[in-house]
């Protein structure tokens, strides 16, 4: 089963490329201190140095900080925020979606109205407001992103649970005397794992974009070097020093692209039936 899954995933070339991209980014984040041991905020060369001068691969910014060091250290921030906020959002979304789908009735209605409340507020505005209120820090950014991203997942999980709940294997578990909690966790959730994983992989990409946008607006964590901050601070000198915003911009683009490719690959690998099971 696992082998089939890997084969199906590997058959999708885009997914393999995406995996390679994300693997490189992860390696960059893990070995940031080895590659660039000095603080990315340190001045290491002349300001406004174009790429490939003074041993700086991507040049320096207006304060003489190494852009390449910023990119490598920024990968940590982006991945950290992307992953933790997605984990938190998946937790909230699955919990609310599963309860609403399994129990239904007034409880389900209540939870879904609550979910809709979050869906109707524009995401970015809500994030900005939350971060502005709680002062920008890694924690407040992660919390804000998680709070705006769980709602669509909750709806998705509710739909899956709703259709699985009436399946005969769930009824069989009921007649075997399993408790509601056991039925949700052991019978139903494993069967809606694939859509959850697929949408989670796409949520990581969205979270990274949200964080970059926040940093661009100056609402990032002031102690963390991040790609969005680099693009934002360099935008005023875009015409004199293109490399300052170009390289972090490319980093964001490539990471998000890689994650989206993985998401699509997972989606295809989880649904091999769509292509194969046609023989009747």
């Amino acid at each position: 089963m696992t082998r089939d899954f890997l084969l199906a995933f590997a058959r999708n070339k885009g997914a393999v490329i995406g995996l390679a991209i994300v693997a490189v980014i992860i390696l960059m984040a893990v070995f940031a201190d080895v590659l660039y041991p000095q603080d990315p905020w340190d001045m290491v060369g002349l300001p406004f140095a174009p790429p490939m001068t003074d041993g700086m691969l991507m040049g320096s910014d207006m304060l003489g900080r190494d852009i390449a060091a910023g990119i490598v250290h920024g990968a940590r921030v982006s991945l950290l925020i992307g992953l933790t906020s997605t984990l938190a959002a998946v937790f909230i979304g699955v919990l609310i979606g599963a309860i609403a789908g399994y129990y239904g009735g007034w409880l389900g209605d209540l939870l879904m109205r609550f979910t809709e409340l979050f869906q109707t507020i524009p995401n970015f505005v809500l994030v900005v407001v939350i971060v502005a209120i709680f002062t920008p820090s890694l924690t407040s950014i992660v919390t804000a992103i998680a709070l705006v991203s769980w709602a669509p997942l909750a709806r998705l999980v509710r739909g899956e649970v709703l259709s699985l709940r009436s399946r005969e294997f769930v009824q069989a578990a009921v007649t075997c005397g399993q408790s509601n909690g056991t039925i949700i966790v052991k019978q139903i959730l494993p069967n809606c794992l694939s859509p959850i994983i697929v949408s989670a992989s796409l949520m990581v990409a969205t979270a990274i974009l949200l964080e970059s946008s926040l940093s661009f607006l100056g609402l990032g964590d002031p102690n963390a070097m991040s790609w969005g901050f680099m693009v934002g601070s360099a935008r005023t000198v875009l015409r004199q020093a293109w490399w300052m915003s170009f390289f972090p911009g490319v980093a964001i683009l490539v990471t998000v692209l890689g994650l989206n490719l993985i998401g699509e690959g997972l989606n295809d690998a989880f649904n091999p039936r769509l292509r194969r099971k046609r023989t009747a």
């Binding site: 399946r167 005969e168 294997f169 009824q171 578990a173 005397g177 019978q187 069967n191």
Partner: peptide
Amino acid sequence: FRPFRRHVQMVFQDPYASLNPRH
């Protein structure tokens, strides 16, 4: 009702839907 579940068991119609595919 729970204790009585032991005594009354059911075999379902659709053998493709009545077994959890992940177990």
